[in-house]
Simulated scan of single mutants.
Amino acid sequence: MASILYVCVRPERGAAEAEHASFQRGLGVTELDQLDLVRNPLSDEVLARHDGFVIGGSPFNVTDAVKTPLQQRVEADLERIAARALTGRTPAFFTCFGIGVVTRMLGGALTLKHPESTRVTEIVTTDSAASDPLFGPSAPALTVFTAHKESAVAVPPGATLLATNEDCPVQAYRAGTRLYATQFHPEPSPQDFANRMTFYRNNGYFDAAAFDAVEAEILAAQDVGGEGLLRRFAETVA
Rank of each mutant, 00 (worst) to 15 (best):
83 A>S: 11
83 A>G: 07
83 A>I: 05
83 A>K: 04
84 R>S: 11
84 R>H: 09
85 A>C: 11
85 A>R: 07
85 A>S: 15
87 T>C: 11
87 T>I: 11
87 T>Q: 14
91 P>K: 02
92 A>N: 02
92 A>V: 01
92 A>R: 00
93 F>M: 03
93 F>E: 01
93 F>H: 03
94 F>Q: 03
95 T>Q: 00
95 T>L: 00
96 C>A: 07
97 F>E: 04
102 V>M: 05
102 V>E: 01
102 V>C: 04
103 T>D: 07
104 R>I: 13
104 R>E: 14
104 R>F: 13
105 M>N: 04
105 M>P: 08
105 M>L: 14
106 L>N: 05
107 G>K: 01
107 G>S: 00
108 G>F: 01
109 A>Q: 15
109 A>G: 14
109 A>R: 15
109 A>I: 09
110 L>G: 06
111 T>C: 12
111 T>M: 14
111 T>L: 11
111 T>K: 11
111 T>P: 13
112 L>F: 15
112 L>T: 15
113 K>F: 12
113 K>I: 09
114 H>E: 13
114 H>C: 09
114 H>Y: 14
115 P>V: 00
115 P>H: 00
116 E>D: 12
117 S>F: 09
118 T>Q: 13
120 V>R: 13
120 V>C: 15
123 I>S: 06
123 I>T: 09
123 I>K: 07
124 V>Q: 13
124 V>P: 07
125 T>L: 13
125 T>W: 10
125 T>P: 10
126 T>L: 04
126 T>A: 08
127 D>T: 15
127 D>F: 15
128 S>E: 12
128 S>C: 10
129 A>G: 09
130 A>F: 04
130 A>R: 13
131 S>A: 15
132 D>G: 03
132 D>Y: 04
132 D>E: 02
132 D>H: 01
134 L>F: 07
135 F>W: 10
136 G>L: 04
136 G>Y: 02
136 G>H: 06
137 P>S: 09
138 S>Q: 15
138 S>T: 14
139 A>F: 09
139 A>L: 07
140 P>A: 08
141 A>P: 11
141 A>I: 09
142 L>N: 04
142 L>M: 11
143 T>N: 01
143 T>F: 01
143 T>Y: 00
143 T>C: 05
144 V>G: 04
145 F>K: 10
145 F>Q: 09
146 T>K: 07
147 A>L: 08
147 A>S: 15
148 H>K: 08
150 E>T: 07
150 E>W: 08
154 A>T: 12
155 V>M: 10
156 P>C: 14
158 G>C: 04
160 T>W: 10
160 T>V: 14
160 T>Y: 08
162 L>S: 05
162 L>V: 02
165 N>M: 06
166 E>L: 10
167 D>L: 08
168 C>G: 04
169 P>E: 07
170 V>K: 03
170 V>M: 03
171 Q>K: 01
171 Q>H: 03
172 A>V: 02
173 Y>L: 03
174 R>T: 00
174 R>N: 02
175 A>N: 06
175 A>Q: 05
177 T>Q: 15
177 T>N: 13
177 T>L: 14
178 R>H: 14
179 L>F: 01
180 Y>N: 10
180 Y>R: 06
182 T>W: 00
183 Q>W: 09
183 Q>L: 11
183 Q>N: 10
184 F>N: 03
184 F>C: 02
184 F>V: 00
184 F>K: 04
185 H>F: 12
185 H>P: 15
186 P>A: 05
186 P>M: 02
188 P>G: 09
189 S>T: 14
189 S>G: 07
190 P>L: 04
191 Q>L: 11
